[in-house]
Design a protein around this nucleic acid. Structure first.
Length: 400
RNA sequence: GCGUCGGUGGCAGAGUGGUCAAUUGCAUCAGACUGUAAAUCUGACGGAGUAUUCCUACGGGGGUUCAAAUCCCUCCCGGCGCA
């Protein structure tokens, strides 16, 4: 693209790995990578105001969701308010996810307790029954809130049951209205329980939508000047599909790439290697929806630049915090009885605002008494933890 | 003192002869959470045991019955009314 809204430069490569430290330049500032992208689905990082994010977390970038903002308050409302930055008072680089994840979470995953991470082996019979759902009748039977066809996806709102149609063009149009610095092509996030035949079909559909997303983006000259577009690699857990997806998308005129879809803990690394060996080196790579500290270590080593994940805020809201251990990291459930009189810091090795000023016992009390300060403080800590952990990985690359 | 209603598992509160170790909520204990249907969800929750099993339990004691948290008698405790 000419005069791209966003650009990427590599500052240093890590010898012997695919890892690199870089900078993504956006209209709202630079993102020094590797970086963790804080998730604020509905235009708010749950329980934390933007000023506190800046003061106590220090994140460089935040991500909102196209489908959720489209449903509520409506992308036209955001547009008329001056865009996401104005509307939400987000004074930093931003991204929006395309709604592709909702194709999964409100579709194949709906009501099934399936996550994008497969646990162990997936049986054939599981795959067959869970998948290939195309008709509204079948969707209704399975209690899904969206139906996929080659042209797009028809959603049933989880808020009021109304029907909404998403296509590549529609998703891009909405993202133009929302106005984030980095927007994402509409894709289909598949379930880890899907069989290979379906993964290929979905991947090829995502490729067609990718092409259409680019066309839609290029038709809006104003948006083109202000927003960069990422394409999303799919292919599920199959390395050959992953490679093919990365190859196909690399040939398209994207500003960067998202790596999406489902994995299992075991094959995440190989999938990232295969993909990042193919993707153009001079474009940023965002690992969508991942992850845990150990996942980010692996992702950075294998050439991913940015990461987003709801885990830090989601687990925080129910009383679980990240804590550093000699071996690495662990999740600590503050509601466990043993913490009711624990006067230690939430995380002994952490120098965040929360750990400097509060004890495990106090946080445990806040959660037991359902005080809203509990979710707030735990979210602050977890976000600080993961954001700064990722920053340290950058330092490590710069210092090696 | 008389009358009346009531005493159920940590709490509240169902049940009113067998399908009751006893609905439900809260509390408690533990688990889960990876591009947010999520301040959510799941499990345990009298004791022992892997278990189809046994023991102890619906204020205390006694009784009726094949069988009682449920019926009867009595005692204790509480609310209300009348003295």
């Amino acid at each position: 693209m000419q005069n791209p809204a966003i650009s990427f430069e590599i500052v240093k490569r890590q010898p012997g790995t695919l890892g690199r430290a870089g900078v993504i330049h956006t209209p709202h500032g630079d993102i020094e990578t590797p970086a963790f992208v804080v998730v604020g689905t509905k235009g708010t990082v749950k329980s934390i105001k933007p000023e506190d994010m800046a003061t106590y977390v220090g994140n460089q970038v935040a991500l909102a969701n196209t489908y959720h903002l489209f449903l509520q308050p409506g992308d036209d409302v955001v547009r008329d308010a001056g865009g996401l930055h104005q509307f939400a008072h987000w004074d930093l680089p931003t991204m929006t996810d395309s709604g592709g994840f909702q194709v999964f979470s409100l579709g194949a995953a709906f009501g099934k307790g399936v996550t994008k991470f497969a646990k162990g082996e997936v049986t054939e019979s599981q795959e067959k029954t869970e998948l290939n759902v195309y008709s509204k009748e079948v969707a209704a039977e399975h209690g899904k809130l969206c139906v996929i066809d080659d042209e797009g996806v028809t959603f049933t709102s989880h808020l009021d049951g109304s029907m909404h149609r998403f296509t590549a063009e529609r998703s891009i149009d909405i993202q133009h209205n929302i106005g984030a610095d980095i927007i994402v092509a509409f894709d289909e996030c598949t379930s880890p329980t899907a069989d290979k035949e379906y993964q290929r079909e979905a991947m090829e559909r995502t490729h067609r939508w990718a092409k259409r997303s680019i066309l839609a983006h290029k038709q809006n000259y104003e948006a083109l000047k202000k927003q960069g577009l990422y394409g999303v690699v799919q292919g599920g857990r199959h390395l050959d599909l992953r490679k093919e997806s990365a190859t196909v998308l690399s040939a398209m005129d994207f500003d960067g790439f998202g790596i999406g879809g489902s994995f299992s803990k075991e094959d995440l690394g190989e999938a990232l290697r295969v993909v990042n060996e193919v993707l153009p080196e001079d474009k940023p790579r965002h690992l969508l929806g991942i992850g845990e500290p150990e996942d980010i270590i692996e992702g950075v080593r294998l050439g991913c630049d940015t990461f987003d994940c709801v885990a830090p805020t989601r687990i925080a809201r129910t009383g679980t915090i990240y804590e550093r251990t000699n071996e690495g990291h662990r999740r600590t459930n503050l509601l466990n009885a043993k913490y009711t009189r624990d006067s230690g810091k939430p995380d002994e090795s952490c120098d965040c605002y929360v750990c400097q000023n509060y004890t495990k016992a106090y946080l445990a009390h806040l959660f037991r008494s359902r005080e809203m300060l509990g979710p707030h403080l735990a979210s602050l800590h977890n976000l600080y933890y993961i954001v700064n952990f990722t920053k340290r990985l950058r330092e490590t690359i710069l210092n090696t």
